[in-house]
Each structure stands twice: as structure tokens, then as C-alpha cells.
Write a protein that binds this DNA or RNA. Structure first.
Lengths: 258, 258
DNA sequence: GTCATGAAAGTTGTCTGACAAATTTTTTTG
DNA sequence: CAAAAAAATTTGTCAGACAACTTTCATGAC
């Protein structure tokens, strides 16, 4: 193997054309592709670092850096002395949303997932809310009301309100996931609002929806809380231009519950 | 600074006692702690790689490897020539569930999140299911029925059934998230079932619940699908010993919707 | 022939030094 | 004072080496 007689240099792996922006990133993507494609089966041994370095035509440091990302993502494990192996359950460690190429369709999908979780959270919050949670929600509600009167958007209190609902579920995983999802929108929502000028009738409408959610949770009416949250979130989606197909899921419709 | 006259070697950072298992992992954890603690504010510049290497008493390669993980996690960004900066929005890139120390309480929280998403998915699936999705669900249903008759658990078809529902939402993000969540249980659920001996009455009960979900989705009755899915998931939670507080959310209760 | 023992090879983890590429800062020049 | 050029920084990559650990294989004892 070490007989690196450069006779003809087999084009095993092209030098990765395109943007040579980040060498280790490219190689990491290539390896991830092989793993997800099944080229490297779960539990199987990967080639050695030196082997990969030779194959890709880079130094061992680059390979190590690329593999470091895969290890962080839980796709690859390594033990000193032994080798590197593909994790038994690849891509199970963390959930990621498409960071780039956020098409309007993709955005609406993410928003729908958020609506799904937050409506359920509102239902749970109505069942389990404590007085402390209610106080936090009420404070955020008043903050938003004041912001509307002063012409601001009150985005900060809006976040606080939704986070208080999430916390009122008593389920830290639900709370963390809602935090995670709402964080995905903080770049796209604010500019839209600001571009619309200062808080207009939209903000007042949103405020009315917030008050309806709060009233339902305070009253312990879980179904009303779900309905109010659903209406609010789908309207928020349309405000940001990411409305899914059904504007409002008609929870009230007179279907036969047979 | 470069006057490294080793007069007394300030104990700026202890040599990281305890398990010296993975040097880069320890340093990565230390840096992550500083970022999450606010020592390094979002948007601020980190010390240079050489500076960190000197501070921790390791080589630059180790620092680079530690930082590589932070970059993969989206906590740190770096540009060649400039420096490394703390990401504006740390810890927003991926959602993780507690991998270790899965207490029964934590497990029930995760299960509740899953129930929340899957009930919503069932509702959406009832509204949007295509004939192809229904066929996939039906095949999985029949596979599970056969498994029950043969005394197996049919866990594979069970996964397929739930994944078909997730796919029928037409929302790839919802499908991916359900896949992610169900993957978190594949280690804990199977042993429990197997430990109970071969498929017993529990399997038959689960099968009846599956059939009810399928019927509701096929009929396009979104509320019935939600209810059936909710019942199934909370029963599944109790089967695995992770039942949240309310056994079944009484969607039917005669609350005052006024 | 089988099993324990130990040497040897292979592999990841870390160190050191160096250069390339890109950015930032400083200096020079008009 | 402004613009251009040079110098200093800093990350990205390369190369070689050694340490720590694991696996494999050869050796020898029974």
C-alpha cells in the first residue's frame, strides 16, 4: 500500500470540484452520503484514516476533521487502537431541519409541524396549568398588549407567551422542542413583520387570538385551547406567507363522531 | 503574551482531571460550557486556536478537533483569516433528546411528545391520505395481523404502519420527526415486549386499535383518527411502562365549548 | 492439538512544525 | 485626509512523528 508509485493515480474519487470552500466539509458530506446510502453498512468498519486520506487525496488531518463532524452527529464511532465503525443506528441522535434552501413549501411544512405540536401543547397546558404558569402567560399577554398600543410588534413577549404555554405542559421535552422550532422562525418572521411597517391590524388580530388562548387555558377548557391555538397558528402561518393547505382545521364541524 | 517565560505557569485551566478519556472531548465540553454559560457571548470572538491551545495546555490539533464538534453543533462559526465567533443563535441547529439517564419520567415525557405528534399526524393523514398511502397502511396492518396469529410481535410491520401514517400527512418534516422519535424507542420497546413472552392479549388489543385508526383514516374522519391514535398511543405508553398522567385525553367529554 | 503468553503489526489520539489562503491592521504614499 | 500597499493575524491544510490502545499472529508449555 505504501508503494505510492504515482504511476497513473486512479480517479477513485474526483478531487471534489465545485466550491472548494471547505475541504473537510466536502469529505464529511461524501462520507455521510456513503453511510446513508448504505455503502458503509451500520456496524461495519470504515476504512482507516490513512486509507481515506489517500483515497480523497487529502491529509489525515482533514479526514479527522471530517470524521469529527460525523462523530458529533452520532453517525460514526471510533475507538483508539481499533478502528472507526458506522453507528448501529445512524441519524438517530438528533433531529435537524433543512437549514438552507428554505423554500416556501418547506417553510410551510415546518410551520405545520410547529402548529401540530403547539396545538397539542395548548391542550395539555389547559389541563395542567399552574397559577405560576398562568401568571407568566398573563404578563406576556399584557406586554404584547402594550406593545400593540405603542406601535411595536412585541415579538419578545410573543415568544414569552408561547414559551409559557409550552412550560405549562409540565413536559420539558415538549417545551424544548417548541423552543427549538420557534427558534427556526426568528430570522424569517421578524423581518416580515417589520417590512409590513409598524404593528398594524394584524398585531391586534393576533392579540385577540392570544387572549382567546389564554382564556381557554385559564378556564381549563382543553378543547377550546386547542381550537384557539390552532386558529392562531394557522393565521400566523398565513401572515408569514407559509400557510399550509387547510386554513383552519375545522374542529367544530358537525362530523359524525359515530 | 508570547513572552512565555515559564516562571510559574498560571493554573488558568486545570489539566482537566478525572477520566482523561478523550482530550478533545473534554475541551469541547469546556468550551461548550463557557458558551452556554455566557462567558463567550453570542456573536463574540473566541480566543485564537493557539491561545486556546496554550490555555488548555494541548496542541492546536486538539483544539481544532474540539472546535470541529462545536461547529458541527452550530455553536461556533469560523472564517479563514478572521477568527472564530460564537454563533448568534447557539444550540438552535438540532434537537436532541436525553440519550443517557433515561428515567421512567423522562421516557414518559418523550412518549407524550410522540403521542402529541402522532395524533396530529393521524388527523392530517385522514384529511390527505392517498390510495397509495392507504395501501401501504393496509399491507402493514395485514402483516401485523399475521404476526399476531403466528405468535410474533410484528414490530417491523408496526413501525411500517406508523410510518405510513406519517407519510400520509404529505409533510416530510412531520414524517422525519416521527421517524426520529420512534427510533428513540426501538431499544426500549422490543425487550419489554419480548420479556412479556410471545404476543399475548396485548398484541391483539394493539391490533384492534390499529384497525380502528386505519378505518378512521380510510373514511377520512379526522377527529375519529385523532381519537383512535390517541387511545392507541397512550395504551402503548402504559404497555411500555411510560404512561403519562392522563390515561386517555377525553376528547369526547361534554365540556362547555362556549 | 489446545491453550496461555508475548511479540508484532495496525489504528486512533496527540504533538510539533511548517506553509497556504484569507482577513485584518498598519504603514506608506498620493 | 484618502487610497493603496505592506505587514501582521488567523484559520485551513500538509507532513512526519510518537504515544496509547487493540488486534493478530507466532511462540512455547501442557
Amino acid at each position: 500500500m505504501t508503494s505510492a508509485a504515482p504511476t497513473f493515480v486512479p480517479p477513485a474519487a474526483a478531487p471534489l470540484p465545485g466550491t472548494p470552500g471547505r475541504l473537510s466539509a466536502d469529505i464529511g458530506a461524501a462520507l455521510e452520503g456513503r453511510i446513508r446510502n448504505g455503502d458503509y453498512a451500520p456496524g461495519a468498519r470504515l476504512p482507516t484514516e490513512m486509507g481515506l486520506a489517500e483515497e480523497f487525496g487529502v491529509s489525515r488531518a482533514v479526514v479527522r476533521e471530517a470524521v469529527a463532524r460525523l462523530k458529533a452527529d452520532g453517525l460514526v464511532e471510533s475507538r483508539q487502537g481499533s478502528g472507526m465503525t458506522v453507528a448501529q443506528r445512524p441519524a438517530s441522535g438528533s433531529f435537524k431541519l433543512p437549514a438552507e434552501a428554505r423554500s416556501a413549501e418547506s417553510l410551510s411544512h415546518i410551520f405545520e409541524l410547529r402548529a401540530l405540536v403547539e396545538t397539542g401543547a395548548a391542550e395539555l397546558a389547559a389541563k395542567r396549568r399552574s397559577s405560576a404558569h398562568l401568571a407568566t402567560m398573563y404578563a406576556a399577554l399584557q406586554g404584547m398588549g402594550e406593545a400593540v398600543r405603542m406601535g411595536a410588534d412585541g415579538a419578545e413577549d410573543d415568544d414569552a407567551f408561547h414559551q409559557a404555554i409550552a412550560a405549562a405542559t409540565g413536559n420539558p421535552e415538549i417545551r424544548r422542542f417548541i423552543d427549538f422550532l420557534s427558534g427556526q422562525f426568528s430570522e424569517s418572521r421578524r423581518p416580515t413583520w417589520d417590512a409590513q411597517g409598524h404593528a398594524s391590524g394584524r398585531a391586534r388580530a393576533a392579540q385577540a387570538e392570544h387572549e382567546r388562548i389564554y382564556a381557554a387555558i385559564a378556564a381549563g377548557d382543553s378543547m377550546a385551547a386547542r381550537q384557539a391555538a390552532s386558529r392562531h397558528l394557522y393565521q400566523a402561518a398565513s401572515r408569514v406567507g407559509a400557510a399550509p393547505e387547510p386554513p383552519i382545521p375545522d374542529t367544530n364541524e358537525e362530523t359524525n363522531h359515530g
